[in-house]
Nucleic acid binder design. Structure first.
Length: 565
DNA sequence: CGGATTTGACCGGCGC
DNA sequence: GCGCCGGTCAAATCCG
């Protein structure tokens, strides 16, 4: 429940590994809020994030809250004032400032106005009254700023709620549209098949065997290859029938054993055989290939974790465990149980080379609304998969598109994205273990029938974040999550002109790539979710993740912790 | 007692 | 054709 996983995000350096395992232990063993005053997290994209800022004395200082952030910003320079500041800060912590009424604020403002006239008075004759007045002034200023920020936060939260609601509605519409379009597309495909069969003297496949009926598919074996995918896309709550007696009905209709002919297993299975079937089908065309690939696209996440499974906000039910060849650690199979009939599955296995690394492989797209905690991972994996597939689908620019994809997904230098060359399906691996990967290539995508390719580093020499927005952007940049990085990359290009200028100098083609990536991203529905999550994480404070009172004991790295179910 | 997990069996694909 | 392997099922078991 409180097992978290997330990212070690260091805004001051990029050399430290990401101790995901320690994140879990932190989240498990440091739930005492009393110890977390200095480790309050800002959830970024659903991941509560601890921010650190470089202080004047060279050490990292965690931004513990908005109050702390602002109090620190108003930090007086002199030691005497520093004591006052500490007093003010303590007052803030005690929330006395919150209870101050508006009248007090006005008084403070007046004092602030008059205080400048008195600033010429010799410090040596400063009295307690002046100190008091200075405190009051500072207090009032802080309060005004706090109130302003509170109102701003309130507005932003309202906006976020609106955006989130819109996104959910759009997501449902998208699912419905995809089903509808898929149905139409398959009819076109089948019409072509009919023409082909006719031209070669083959029989005409009865149309009624090619379409969906009542949420299940009455499929002739001859055309099951092309229409199996149809059942995948139609894997909506209508598939609930599968759990009941419908399965037997389908078994009987197919006249086979039934297990692998049931819609559930055929649509949700992710063995290579199914895709191969589709690829070998006589009715194969680009569309069918695309759909087959789409169904089989996988997103693998490598993260350090001592837990048996990372928490990604979704509910999973284990349905199997196998010993995989070449790995002493068993591979566990999970399916999403947040909605009946959800086709999403995942495999969890420890890395054979480094057992502290947990490899989680996701396949499929959720057919149901996701909680905010699950939105980040789902959006990330979905975006990575869809963008990977968009690259794999563009046969004309088989090299260029993946490059763009790779650049877009994992632009930062320490990110690792790999695919097994032998993998039957396009799989993107998001490596959150950072430099634990012995692979010297900063980024590799491996697709079937394509050699792995590399993309250059984007953020070499990136500037240290100079403000909160930049820090957040830096977090995105270093987050290793494709969706986050995509959105961040665009944002940072506006936020940090200097940095992007450097990038352009280093990568002359970057501008084009970013433009193309921008177009791709903005057309991606997941972008909305990522953006919403980003806004939420920044303004939502602990609300979105109030069950995360986790402490990061790592003095150097800030941690984004990911609360699960 | 119901839901989740475990685990042996089963199945299909693939390579030889 | 046979064996290996990955993926899945489902009865048995566990657990809260």
């Amino acid at each position: 429940m409180d097992k978290g996983w997330g990212l070690a995000l260091d805004t001051s350096s990029s050399s430290s590994p990401i101790p995901i395992s320690s994140l879990n232990s932190f989240s498990r063993h440091n739930t005492n809020d009393n110890n977390n005053n200095n480790n309050r997290m800002f959830p970024i994209l659903g991941f509560p994030v601890n921010l650190t800022r470089n202080t004047e004395d060279g050490g990292d200082r965690k931004i513990t809250s908005e109050v702390d952030f602002f109090s620190d910003r108003n930090k007086p320079s002199s030691s005497a004032s520093h004591e006052q500041h500490q007093h003010v800060k303590s007052n803030i912590v005690k929330k006395e400032i919150i209870s101050t009424d508006e009248k007090h604020v006005n008084t403070g403002l007046q004092l602030a106005n008059t205080g400048s006239d008195q600033s010429v008075v010799d410090d040596g004759v400063s009295s307690d009254a002046e100190n008091k007045r200075a405190k009051t002034t500072e207090l009032a200023q802080l309060q005004v700023e706090l109130q302003r920020m509170n109102s701003e936060n309130k507005k932003l939260k309202e906006m976020l709620n609106h955006v989130t609601g819109n996104y959910t509605a759009l997501q449902m519409q998208l699912v419905a549209l995809m089903q509808k379009n898929h149905h139409t597309e398959n009819e076109v495909v089948n019409a072509k098949a009919e023409e082909k069969n006719q031209s070669v003297g083959g029989g005409i496949v009865p149309r009624q065997f090619l379409s969906i009926t009542n949420g299940t598919t009455e499929v002739d074996d001859q055309v099951s290859n092309s229409s199996s995918d149809e059942r995948t896309r139609s894997n909506t709550p209508m598939n609930n029938q599968i759990e009941g007696g419908t399965r037997d009905h389908i078994r009987n209709n197919n006249g086979k054993n039934g297990r692998d002919d049931s819609p559930e297993s055929e649509t949700q299975g992710w063995g290579p055989n199914k895709a191969q079937k589709i690829l070998n089908s006589s009715n194969v065309n680009d569309q069918a290939n695309t759909e087959a690939t789409m169904r089989k696209a996988r997103v693998s996440v490598r993260a350090r974790s001592e837990a048996s499974m990372i928490s990604d906000g979704c509910q999973w039910r284990k349905y199997g465990q196998k010993m995989a060849k070449g790995n002493p650690c068993p591979r566990a199979y999970y399916r999403c149980t947040m909605a009946v009939g959800c086709p999403v599955r995942k495999q969890v296995q420890r890395c054979a080379e480094d057992k502290t690394i947990l490899v989680t492989t996701y396949e499929g797209t959720h057919n149901h609304p996701l909680p905010p905690a699950a939105m980040a991972m789902a959006s990330t994996t979905s975006a990575a998969a869809s963008m990977l597939l968009s690259g794999s689908m563009s046969s004309a620019d088989g090299i260029m598109t993946p490059n763009l994809l790779a650049r877009a997904i994992l632009p930062c230098s320490t990110s690792m994205a790999t695919l097994s060359a032998s993998a039957p399906f396009p799989t993107v691996t998001l490596d959150l273990t950072q430099n634990s990967n012995p692979n010297p290539n900063p980024l590799q995508f491996q697709r079937p029938h394509h050699a792995p390719f590399q993309v250059p580093n984007f953020f070499q020499g990136q500037q240290q974040p100079q403000n909160f927005a930049q820090a957040a952007a830096s977090l995105y940049n270093q987050s290793k999550f494709s969706g986050l990085q995509l959105s961040q990359e665009i944002g940072s290009s506006h936020l940090t002109t200097q940095a992007s200028t450097q990038q352009q100098q280093q990568q002359p083609s970057l501008a084009d790539s970013v433009s193309a990536a921008t177009a791709a991203i903005t057309s991606d529905p997941n972008f909305t979710a990522v953006l919403a999550a980003a806004i939420s994480s920044i303004i939502g404070g602990g609300h979105a993740n109030n069950n995360n009172a986790n402490t990061n004991n790592n003095s150097r790295s800030s941690i984004s912790n990911f609360s699960g179910n």
